[in-house]
Simulated assay, not measured.
Amino acid sequence: MKYRKLGNSGLKVSEIGLGSWLTYGKAVNDHTAHDCIHRAYELGINFFDTANAYEEGKAEIVLGEALQRYERSSYVVATKLFFPMGQGPNERGLSRKHIIEQCDASLKRLGLDYIDLYQCHRFDPEVPMEETLYALDDLVRQGKILYAGVSEWSAAQIEKAVGIRKDLHLRPIISNQPIYNMLERYIEEDVLQVSNENGMGQVVFSPLAQGVLTGKYKPNAEKPSDSRAANDSTNFVINSYLRNDVLQCVEKLNTLATDLDLSLSQLSLAWILSHEGISSAIIGASRPQQIEENVKAVDIELSKETLQEIDEILEEIKGFAPLR
């Protein structure tokens, strides 16, 4: 495994991280989830991502249980907050009340004394940004979190937060967690540049486009019965990828990967890691074998010619934006 600094901070995270969205506490039983987490750790992954809203806290519980056997200093846990955790008017968003209460709740579910990276899962237009940033800074001062980050914030929102932080002399935001893969590239427009300029690293999710960039889905073909696309509880995030033109493009990428003696997932991850400002690509896994295959991407260095060929293939679906 290889490690990169998270933005301009001193925190080092594995180039491949393991996430728990739509898997742990949901589609994958707890025993298998623990096996995946243990195998990831054995392979050198030290960055584990979750969120309070993933199955109403169940994913945090599963992750915390699995990590209990390891020395606390040897891994980095990231969790998030924003989405509703109850029916009350204050049980959502980025108010000081919700941030403080949900941090305590996440610590309890994870079974930890502190959270390494605490992230705002989305931007909250209803709360003054100063209130959110002060609350995060106070959590750092209290030792409940070590670093703060955001997820899926726009370039303008990031710039505003950086300006407020500097004016108020608050601790920096060190990360952004956006979706990023060969098919969904909006952060290249301005988010990457703004983040790089302000010392924020990207810990990207869905690097394999929910499995589309493994080559398992074919144009004009039925969805594999054991796939996320065939599962009614998880297919809402993948179906918009399953256009014939997109899948035809994926087939060309798969052919290129085969010519390079790589799997498509390895090619896709190596492509992401070739971009400046990327600290970690967060994979999902329902079997340990998937992790074993994907971590090999850290040793792959794509040539300029290969990167150019990838760009030419992706040009065929330029502007593609999945429905969210």
Rank of each mutant, 00 (worst) to 15 (best):
M1D: 11
K2Y: 10
Y3P: 01
K5I: 09
K5P: 12
N8Y: 14
N8S: 11
S9H: 11
G10D: 06
S14T: 03
G17M: 04
W21T: 04
N29E: 07
D35R: 15
D35V: 05
L43A: 06
F48N: 05
D49C: 13
A51H: 07
N52G: 13
A53T: 15
E55D: 06
K58F: 00
A59E: 00
A59F: 08
E60A: 12
G64D: 04
A66V: 00
L67H: 06
Q68F: 03
R69A: 03
R69W: 09
Y75F: 07
Y75W: 13
A78M: 08
L81C: 14
L81W: 14
L81M: 14
F82W: 13
P84W: 01
G86L: 00
P89V: 03
N90F: 12
G93T: 10
L94R: 08
H98R: 02
C103M: 11
L107M: 08
L107N: 04
R109F: 00
L110E: 00
D116S: 08
Y118A: 03
C120S: 10
H121V: 12
P125A: 01
P128H: 11
L133D: 01
L133N: 05
L139A: 04
V140Y: 08
R141T: 01
Y147P: 14
Y147H: 03
G149L: 14
I158L: 14
A161I: 11
I164W: 00
R171S: 14
P172Y: 11
P172R: 08
I173A: 00
S175G: 12
S175M: 09
I179K: 15
I187Y: 08
E189A: 15
D190S: 11
Q193A: 06
S195N: 05
G199H: 06
Q202I: 15
S206D: 09
Q210V: 10
G211H: 03
G211M: 00
V212P: 01
L213W: 06
L213T: 04
G215T: 01
K216N: 02
A221H: 06
K223L: 09
D226I: 05
N231F: 05
D232E: 15
D232G: 05
N235R: 10
I238S: 04
I238L: 04
N244H: 12
E251K: 09
K252Y: 04
N254A: 11
N254F: 13
T255M: 08
D261Y: 08
S263K: 12
Q266E: 14
S274I: 11
H275T: 05
G277Q: 02
S279Q: 14
P288I: 07
Q290Y: 15
E292V: 13
E293P: 02
V295D: 00
K296T: 12
V298P: 10
S303W: 10
E312H: 14
L314F: 01
G319H: 02
F320I: 01
